[in-house]
């Protein structure tokens, strides 16, 4: 434990920035390998709306100039990097001329709220269940959870979402079918709005929890079995410690360590949301934004969203690197 040495912090920060830079560069390169010309897509969209477009060539040219597509690649790249650092991802081509950063800023809180709550819940439920599956003194019922967890893990979240929607919303009318909040409430920091948000978020969150807790439970079960066979667990029993104390201090406390690393990696990915879950619940989060952007070939939004995902992943890994020595004394803040 103790304080974090500055040299360690600097090295970690450099790694963080390098990761983000390389990823940002890849995000920029990959769409440019595709033969699609975004200017032509925009033109096509105009044509679809208006029937025909006059001066098609001129419009194409002005669009290319407007989006900087005529610049040499290096100039495009440097501009891109400058913009990315300031979170300026340009204008969405699909919902022109809204800035991408506005779209992301609007969607991100919804996804973060939904996903952080559901992933945290699954993390706790899943790990607790996984630990109890192994513990000898657990109620017999917990053993039944093993096949249940396996079955639920293999259900795609879209199916769990549809089933829950069908039974709890359509049949029993307990929850609203779609949306992130009720149409009758005014968004703002009010209690009625918060209630509406929770009420609407419950089903999407539940459909994610139902299909993901098994991942943690089965992973934790494997880790617990290993820890159960460790000599220190045997010695703990020989020391006459109370079984609950052994379960917590000797078994879970050691088995949870790799799960925390996995959790950090998930935190980054969850920004993308459960794309299809958000889609079927018409939930206005990042997942729906990415889904629509892909359908619309909306490059700036795809780039912006991918960048945010990578930034989140890199940040959470960075954070875990900082906290890990506090939870595992064998790991030191070194180099």
């Amino acid at each position: 434990m103790g304080r974090i040495p500055p040299q360690y912090l600097i090295n970690r920060l450099i790694t963080l920035l390098l990761t983000v830079w390389i990823a940002a560069t890849l995000i920029w390169i990959i769409p440019r390998l595709s033969p699609v010309d975004p200017a032509e897509i925009m033109l096509g969209r105009m044509a679809a709306g208006a029937g025909t477009v006059e001066n098609a060539d001129q419009i194409l040219q002005s669009l290319r100039a407007r989006f900087g597509l005529d610049d040499p690649l290096l100039v495009q790249y440097l501009k891109y990097i400058r913009n990315v650092v300031t979170f300026d991802f340009g204008l969405s081509t699909a919902s022109f001329p809204t800035p991408v950063s506005h779209l992301i800023a609007r969607a991100l809180p919804w996804t973060l709220g939904l996903m952080i709550i559901s992933v945290t819940i699954t993390f706790f439920i899943g790990n607790a269940l996984g630990a109890l599956m192994v513990w000898e003194r657990s109620p017999k019922l917990v053993r039944v959870a093993i096949p249940v967890a396996m079955i639920f893990t293999s259900i795609p979240p879209i199916l769990s979402g549809l089933l829950l929607m069908y039974f709890l919303s359509a049949k029993m009318r307990l929850f609203p079918l779609t949306g992130s909040y009720g149409l009758t409430v005014e968004p703002g920091w009010t209690w009625s709005f918060a209630q509406s948000v929770m009420y609407h978020g419950f089903l999407p969150a539940l459909s994610i929890v139902v299909v993901t807790f098994g991942f943690w439970a089965l992973g934790m079960r494997g880790l617990m079995i290993t820890v159960q066979g460790e000599d220190y667990t045997k010695l703990a029993e020989a020391k006459g410690l109370r079984p609950r104390y052994i379960l917590y201090k000797y078994m879970i406390r050691n088995a949870i360590l790799p799960q925390i690393t996995a959790f950090a990696l998930k935190i980054g990915l969850l920004v993308a949301g459960q794309i299809l879950v958000e889609r079927i619940f018409a939930y206005n989060g990042m997942g729906k934004l990415i889904y629509d952007a892909i359908l619309d070939q909306d490059f700036p939004v795809i780039q912006g969203a991918s960048y945010i995902i990578i930034l989140m992943t890199a940040l959470s890994v960075f954070l875990v690197d900082l906290i890990y020595p506090l939870i595992d004394p064998r790991i030191k803040h070194e180099r």
Binding site: E230, D231, Y232, K234, L235, A236, E237, A238, K239, G240, L241, R242, P243, K249, Y250, R253, N254, I327, D328, P329, R330
Partner: peptide, 24 residues
Amino acid sequence: MRKARLGRVSYIPQGAMNSLNPIM
């Protein structure tokens, strides 16, 4: 029995390397 362990009969295990809880 739990109270008898360590209190009346104690056990010194074989795997010295791995007998102590690494996080305590």
